[in-house]
Simulated assay, not measured.
Amino acid sequence: MSDQFSKVSALLYEEAAALDEQRWDDWLALFTPDVEYWMPAWDSEHELTQDPTSEISLIYYSDRSGLEDRIWRIKSGMSSASTPLPRTCHLVTNIRVGAVVDGLLQVKANWQGNAYRHEKTDSFYGSYTYGLREEQGKLLIARKKIVLMNDTIPSVVDVYNV
Rank of each mutant, 00 (worst) to 15 (best):
G77L: 13
A10S: 13
S80Q: 07
L67H: 13
A115T: 00
Q106A: 00
S155F: 04
T49Q: 12
L104M: 08
T32A: 05
S155H: 01
S155D: 11
V92A: 01
R70W: 15
V101T: 11
M39N: 07
T93E: 06
G131F: 14
I71Q: 08
P40Q: 14
V92I: 04
R133Y: 06
I95N: 01
Q136D: 13
W27H: 01
I71H: 11
W27N: 03
T129H: 04
A109Y: 05
I74A: 11
C89M: 15
E68C: 04
K75M: 13
F5T: 06
K144C: 03
S127Q: 11
I141A: 03
V101W: 08
Q50Y: 12
Y130S: 05
H46R: 11
R133C: 00
K7W: 11
D51N: 06
H118L: 15
V159M: 10
R87M: 13
D34I: 07
T129M: 02
Q22Y: 07
S9V: 04
Q4T: 15
A115Y: 02
V35A: 01
H90Q: 02
L105Q: 04
F31P: 08
I95D: 03
E15P: 03
Y130H: 06
Y128D: 02
N110Y: 07
M1G: 08
F124T: 02
G137R: 04
E135F: 05
T93A: 10
G113N: 01
E135P: 02
W72N: 15
D43L: 14
M149K: 14
L28F: 13
V147N: 12
I59R: 00
A16I: 00
D63M: 05
V100M: 14
V147G: 12
P154N: 10
V100K: 12
V156A: 02
P52W: 14
L140H: 10
A109M: 00
N94W: 03
L148G: 07
W111I: 04
D26I: 08
R117K: 15
P154E: 14
A18E: 05
T83G: 04
S6K: 12
S79L: 02
S2Q: 10
S9H: 09
L148A: 10
G126Q: 10
A81W: 09
E55M: 09
E119V: 10
R87K: 14
A18V: 00
R23I: 05
W72F: 15
M78P: 00
D63L: 04
R70F: 13
D43R: 15
W24K: 11
D122I: 08
M78Q: 13
L67E: 15
A16H: 00
W24C: 06
L105S: 14
